[in-house]
Design a protein around this nucleic acid. Sequence first.
DNA 1: TATGAATGGTTCAGTATTGGATCAGATAAG
DNA 2: CTTATCTGATCCAATACTGAACCATTCATA
Lengths: 223, 223
Amino acid sequence: MPKLVANDIALALKKRISLGEWLENGRMPPERDLASEFGVARNTVRRAVSMLEDDGTVVRHVGRGTFLTAGNPDSMAATVARMEGTSPADMMEIRQLLEPAAASFAATNASTGELNAVREAHKIACASQDMPTFEHWDAEFHHRIFACSRNDFLKEIHNLMRILRNQRPWFEMKKRSFSEERRATYCSEHQLVLDALLARDSEGASEAMLTHLRTVERNLLGR
Amino acid sequence: MPKLVANDIALALKKRISLGEWLENGRMPPERDLASEFGVARNTVRRAVSMLEDDGTVVRHVGRGTFLTAGNPDSMAATVARMEGTSPADMMEIRQLLEPAAASFAATNASTGELNAVREAHKIACASQDMPTFEHWDAEFHHRIFACSRNDFLKEIHNLMRILRNQRPWFEMKKRSFSEERRATYCSEHQLVLDALLARDSEGASEAMLTHLRTVERNLLGR
DNA sequence: TATGAATGGTTCAGTATTGGATCAGATAAG
DNA sequence: CTTATCTGATCCAATACTGAACCATTCATA
């Protein structure tokens, strides 16, 4: 009998959304179904759903249905796809945020076995004579530091960055910037990181890593 | 039954793949077989399998069949799949690394238009009365700060985190930890972040964001 | 080597579902 | 009376599924 039935329905829907309904595939029932469920004309449901849409709680697609904006299933792949276009400068900026932190975590959390694995990778990288081998063990050195960090999400982000860096534009860039002298520089910088890790000096590990990444950035981007 | 059958089939297939089905030879059944098994047209199965192909779960070869790409832990798809299992604690740790930095970047880089967008999201979030609306605009607030950061990679990482946070286990956790009082706390903390951004105080923005994230962590993980 | 079966790739016409838009009429509030 | 809202209905536009045919490639086997 009161007016503003649409408003009431909108609130009821929000309530049900907040209780986790329709979270499986993120899809709400068709307007026609809701209308009969609420015992109301479809027009009224439409107005209610439009309020949710204005909220940003929901998006509608002709022919497909109405979807919760949270619980977006397939956008993960799209996000990763967009990452493929990441510029070296952007990525270096993020590496300088994450890797010193990872090194710091590693200094406090790593087991001696894990640290030995880091040392191993460092040793092979230093001993390697050709660029692909060095590249591989250099990456492995960084990767194993992340492996010590005890944060699985951080590890996976690093995996992402690693995969991106192994793609075409990056590969060219690394090849161009590679030189025997730089390899030696990287080795000695890695050594400082490793020393700090072994000394369980988290502050020092973080700083050594940051220094190293700044060198890498300078070499890669030519600044 | 509603529609989006292909979507459901894609999810069912992913489930079965992650349960280790078809792992011996890495080969999935022919599309025609799957079609009859699911009781749908082959076109529909094709669309489902195409989704798997798009996110890299699977490769197809004419005349040979459809094959799993799993077994290669270095693939994007496998990395993303592993991320789905990220624990709240791990993610909060990374948020505390990245978001203060994003806020700091935003304070120096954002255009006034972008800052207005941030303010707008903040305003709506504070004014919202129910949990889904607040959730949405709270997320939008954070997202728009990342949008100011001028680092596309950082933005995409945040998108990843946002998607993960909208999935089942997180949703339950947020629902449990939501309360009117906490919403008010978040609003006032957001306000401090916003003030620092508007004052172009990168240091302050970073600190305010960190403070906020520590509150969120405390509420979410109950520490 | 040649053939044919198996398999993914493509296209098309037809049907069903779903949100978008509009309209005439009924009902309640001011 | 006027205004706003809801009802009930109709039509439109976009999307999804069906069923079918045909193509291209691969591979086992005659």
